[in-house]
Simulated assay, not measured.
Amino acid sequence: MRARDIMTNPVICVRPGTSVREAAQVLTRHRFAALPVLDDDSRLIGIVAESDLIRNRIPADLRGNIWEADDDVEREAPPGTVGEVMTETVVAMTPGADVADIAEHMLEHHVRSMPIVDGSRVIGIVSRQDVLRTMVRTNDAVAADVRRHLRAYASSWGSWEVSAAEGVVTVHAELPPDDGDDTTKRVVIALARAVPGVSRVHVEPRNGE
């Protein structure tokens, strides 16, 4: 399964001069976790996440001690633009990136969204929610997509039966008798694993081998 299979596209981006308020409105309206930040040449220069917009912006409720309210006058105004709060060091991946690698990076570096780029152009974004959605697809939907992949790329190999249960796909296939190096079996596994929601693939021969 590759980034292109699950990414959100087109992706909404902002500029460094976008106001923090406007960026917050976009995040809440579309239920995004982060927004890529582009320069005037549409190149990726950063990412702004929910935490960036919230940091140092929500004042304490002083109703319990009104004498502390005077301190509020001395505080500096919070940053007003995305360019002032965004994270400039941002990792991006390509449409062909393995979703497993994206998920591992997200967990290791505590990020919730991964921009997907083609050269210097942002073409999509993968969020943790996108990854999670692949885990809750129905068994019938997963099996149907595997069948479509096999029909599209392996229609000349004979017939097969596909079943799915909790991300585990079993393919009963007519493997050619001369497939001593398991080439066909490996191709079937690769095609099935490209389907969102597939975690493991078992190939069972139907020709008695």
Rank of each mutant, 00 (worst) to 15 (best):
A154V: 03
S159L: 12
S156A: 07
A192P: 04
E174F: 06
S163D: 10
S163H: 03
G197E: 06
N207C: 01
A192M: 07
E161K: 13
V162R: 00
V203L: 14
S159G: 14
P196S: 11
P205A: 04
L191Q: 10
S199K: 12
V162K: 00
R186M: 11
S163W: 02
A173G: 04
S159H: 12
S163L: 04
V198L: 08
W157I: 02
V195A: 08
V195K: 06
D179H: 09
R200E: 14
E166F: 05
D179Y: 08
V198E: 03
S159R: 12
T183R: 14
Y153S: 07
L191A: 09
S155W: 08
T183I: 13
S156W: 04
S159Q: 13
G158S: 13
P176W: 01
A192C: 15
K185G: 13
A192W: 01
T170H: 07
W157F: 09
N207S: 07
S155P: 05
S156Y: 09
K185L: 11
H172E: 14
S156G: 05
R206W: 02
E166I: 04
L175H: 00
S163E: 12
S156R: 06
V203T: 13
G180D: 02
R193G: 13
N207W: 00
V187P: 01
V162G: 01
T184P: 01
S199D: 14
G180M: 00
T184S: 05
V188F: 11
P176C: 03
A164I: 04
A165L: 11
V169F: 06
P196T: 12
Y153F: 15
V201F: 07
N207P: 00
D178R: 00
V187F: 07
E166K: 09
P196I: 11
Y153N: 14
H202G: 10
S159D: 15
D181S: 09
G158C: 12
A164V: 03
E166Y: 04
G197K: 06
G197S: 08
K185W: 02
S199V: 12
R193N: 10
N207Q: 02
G167S: 04
V169E: 04
G167E: 09
P176A: 04
P176M: 03
S155C: 04
P177I: 10
R186F: 07
T170V: 14
R206A: 13
E174D: 15
G158Y: 08
H202Q: 15
V169L: 09
V168T: 10
S163M: 04
E204D: 15
K185H: 06
S199P: 01
S163A: 09
T170W: 05
R186E: 14
D182K: 08
S163V: 09
D179G: 13
R206F: 02
V198W: 03
L191H: 11
W157D: 07
E166D: 12
S156H: 08
G158H: 11
D178F: 00
I189P: 01
G180A: 05
N207V: 01
S156C: 03
V187C: 04
E161T: 15
R200T: 14
V162D: 00
Y153H: 14
S155D: 10
A194Y: 07
A165P: 01
G197I: 06
D178I: 00
S159A: 12
K185I: 03
V171T: 01
A173D: 03
K185V: 08
D179V: 08
